[in-house]
Amino acid sequence: MGGAGGAIETMELTRMQTEETSDQAKIRELDAFIQSLGLDGRDAAGRRAVLIQILHRAQGLFGWLPEEVQKHISAKLDLHVSEVYGVVSFYHFFKTKPSGRHVIDFCTGTACFVRGIGKVIEQVEAQTGTKLGETSGDGRFTLGSLRCVGACSLAPVLQVDGKTYGRVTPEQVEAILAEYK
């Protein structure tokens, strides 16, 4: 009995350790990127000018922008954390919550609106039991929206993990979701 529990605990511990090290590696990579920007001797305005660029990079590495990462960036740039957060919270591209394994983004451009993206969203929400902007309980899907992706001829459009699906009907939703476990 104790053995099984112990094994699970060990697995959990290993998982945490690997996560830890992978986070540290990401921080190191982020630091190397910041280093490459050559910020020495720059004034606050000069350091601020690369903030959004660094946030993009950090989100690319972590998938989102955890508080600790925002604090780290603020320390690196010697800007107040409130300022960094103010910027992060202003731009919709920056995510302050981790995403599920798969991210479904709906295009909310006008063409997609006119061509019925609303019904597709309803269908996906119903099938995943998740509201737009949230992550499903099992961590499988995060539902988000994108401003016009410019693929208006394919309207209505949704993207799963960056792959575009065009002329989507509510009936197709089940099959699309089934592609992503």
Binding site: I52, Q53, H56, F90, Y91, F94, R147
Partner: peptide, 26 residues
């Protein structure tokens, strides 16, 4: 190249300028 980050208002030139400066795009 400076990347935006998902804010329609940054098409307004003063907001765009603030965004390039690394600020909130107001």
């Amino acid at each position: 190249i400076k990347l935006g980050a998902g804010a329609f208002v940054c098409g307004e030139e003063t907001a765009l300028i603030h965004s390039i400066e690394g600020k909130r795009g107001e």
